[in-house]
Design a protein around this nucleic acid. Structure first.
Lengths: 135, 135
DNA sequence: GCTTGACCTCAAGTTGACTTGAAGTGCTAA
DNA sequence: TTAGCACTTCAAGTCAACTTGAGGTCAAGC
């Protein structure tokens, strides 16, 4: 059991953010000591997971659906697997982007977009992208 | 040479977004036909790159610094390599997250955060994260 | 030459994810 | 028992990244 300042300290999230997450139902407190919220230790893992998923480009709403209220997702298995696939596509793209950036850092071409090697890298990076729904 | 509707169609970006990008200096038009903007073909690659970098979690400002105005970055080599490193860290995290999500989809535990296998996956996913500046 | 329609500008509105501020509350220690 | 302080709520503010809307303009086809 931790109060909000302990959780804040442990997670590196400001208390305002934790209150906000609780407000939108991403985390929950299990009671109060006085008027202070009390959190279970488990919440720490939950918060780490949320932070991670955010880096993956998921919105808080998507994350809520994926991890659910009690650690059980509120969306179905196939939707979850779809998210994982999405993530894998992104991972491949970002790997290529990383290579592209490294190339820009090292290449001496006037305009990197004109450099054939860079173009090849980007062609690869984007090849996997075709066919994606565009929001 | 393409006008904005052609570019919009080719890139899948709404015209409003293209105008916005031009306004903030991320892309540029090379002239007008009447009052319609004219873009060079090169802009298509630039837009793809922007979209890709955004997926990598970079802000439009960061992207502008990385690819610059004429295809030359406005930040230095070491800063670029740092961005690439950042991206590599993220790639590893997201790979683990993907595994975590797949596990949630398949695991039958009551609460996934309690599942030891899931915990292990997340521990790995987050292990690489320690030491990162937290904004 | 006149209408039409796709573009234009510029200001204001929207959304997601928070933060900030003002005013209140209740353990804790003197 | 009273002061202090860390928490509380709730409304409003902020920021990035766009979108929307009102009112204007120009080339093209009738």
């Amino acid at each position: 059991m931790l109060d909000i300042s302990e959780l804040s300290h442990a997670s590196g999230f400001p208390a305002s953010k934790l209150r906000y997450y609780e407000e939108i139902g991403l985390i929950r407190s299990v009671g109060r000591r006085g008027l202070k919220r009390l959190y279970e230790d488990e919440v720490k893992a939950r918060i780490s997971l949320i932070a991670l998923a955010q880096k993956g480009g998921f919105s808080l709403l998507e994350i809520k659906q994926m991890i659910g209220v009690e650690g059980r997702p509120t969306i179905d298995r196939s939707a979850l697997l779809e998210k994982a696939d999405e993530l894998d596509v992104r991972v491949r793209e970002l790997t290529n982007l990383s290579n592209g950036i490294r190339h820009i850092a090292n290449c001496s071409a006037e305009n990197h977009l004109d450099c054939p090697r860079f173009q090849r890298i980007m062609r690869v990076a984007l090849a996997k992208t075709t066919g994606r729904r565009n929001k």
